[in-house]
């Protein structure tokens, strides 16, 4: 075993040997609490300043733009109008029974819905694929160096620019691509399958391949912290493997699952390039609408769409966090 030394346990975060609880005196607690307050301020100050400079200020300008207007000269004019938001929800002929758009939601909302649906699909697939990998790394691979090495292997494709990787899907899945060649060769199909590329299938596949690694990290950390002694105790009490998994491992790994979900959620909701390169532009994601508007300088409507997207993402994160408390102390 090449485990370093007993008090250097990188593989088992937080499950260090129990130390006897120190005697707590009233004075000690008060003193420490005050100390902690100052200490917290210092800990969050650099990030907060950075966030204000590079996030909050630009974000405020986006919020301001969303109330501005483009005049008929294509110039953005300061204003306070809700027209961009009205346009967001507006469908021509919504209340007109004779129109074919009668009671149809606005195209922006439909685009948001498409994006949402795709995100959910990708999220579920990513979780299903990533969980066993994280489990394998945390529970089956014992040495830290191998855990890290095998995790890094999953990250290697990420170090090739995604622009390159998405272009590489074409020679893989195209009509004359490797997969079709293989299928023709073994004789399963008689002519190349078209749906492999430029379809919802290829888009989902490419997105899963791009982002699945984001799920592995957090789930791995949650699993790695599960104390082996709990599992052994359960086993000694005669619990069956699936019971142990359902009653102990799964609940304890939920924070990691939730964080992985948040990663995938925000990544796919904001995605745009892959939809063009691998999806063949056949599905419009919210990101594409924003790009299309920005490509002609329509910043106010682009801003309002972006803010609605952000709001949706925020609600999603909020729901995920309500379902799983990632700060739970057990």
């Amino acid at each position: 075993m090449d485990r370093p030394s007993p008090n250097f346990h990188p593989g088992l975060i937080g499950s260090a040997p129990q130390a006897p609880a120190p005697p707590k005196t009233g004075v000690g607690i008060i003193k420490r609490r005050r100390g902690t307050g100052v200490y917290v301020t210092w800990l969050v100050a650099p990030s907060t300043i950075w966030l204000i400079l590079f996030l909050i200020v630009p974000l405020l300008s986006i919020i301001v733009f969303s109330f501005w207007q483009i005049n008929d000269q294509n110039v953005m004019v300061p204003n306070f109008t809700l027209v961009n938001y009205a346009e967001y929800f507006h469908t021509e002929g919504f209340f007109d029974p004779s129109s074919d758009k009668f009671l149809t939601l606005s195209s922006n909302i439909l685009t948001l819905w498409t994006t949402l649906r795709l995100t959910m699909e990708v999220m579920v697939i990513c979780l299903l694929l990533a969980y066993p990998i994280a489990y394998f790394l945390a529970m089956q691979v014992k040495a830290f160096k191998w855990q890290l090495a095998l995790f890094l292997m999953c990250m290697v494709p990420f170090w090739t620019s995604y622009l390159i990787r998405t272009v590489a899907w074409v020679p893989m899945l195209g009509r004359r691509g490797l997969v079709n060649k293989f299928l023709l060769w073994i004789g399963i199909v008689e002519k190349p399958l078209g749906f492999l590329l430029y379809s919802e299938f290829s888009l989902t596949l490419a997105l899963v391949q791009l982002y699945v690694v984001l799920c592995i990290g957090p789930i791995f950390f949650s699993l790695a912290k599960i104390d082996n002694s709990i599992l052994e105790a359960a086993r000694d009490m005669g619990a069956k493997p699936y019971q142990i998994f359902r009653e102990i491992i799964l609940p304890l790994s939920l924070p990691g699952v939730a964080i992985g979900m948040i990663f995938i959620w925000v990544m796919i909701m904001g995605e745009f390039a892959t939809a063009g390169l691998v999806g063949g532009g056949k599905m419009a994601l919210v990101g594409n609408s924003i790009i299309d508007l920005m490509g002609t300088g329509q910043y106010p409507p682009a801003s309002s769409i972006a803010l609605m997207l952000m709001l949706t993402m925020m609600i999603g994160v909020f729901i995920i966090l309500k379902l799983v408390d990632i700060r739970k102390q057990l």
């Binding site: 966030l51 996030l55 909050i56 904001g270 952000m310 994160v317």
Partner: peptide, 30 residues
């Protein structure tokens, strides 16, 4: 938990929620 921890949490999270191309534009304008 500390004063403003909830706010700071969502502030940090906004960083991945705001569409990148717009934050880029917003910062460029600022």
């Amino acid at each position: 938990k500390f004063v403003g921890s909830g706010l700071l949490f969502y502030m940090i999270m906004s960083g991945i929620m705001v569409p990148g191309i717009l934050i880029s534009l917003g910062l460029a304008m600022v």
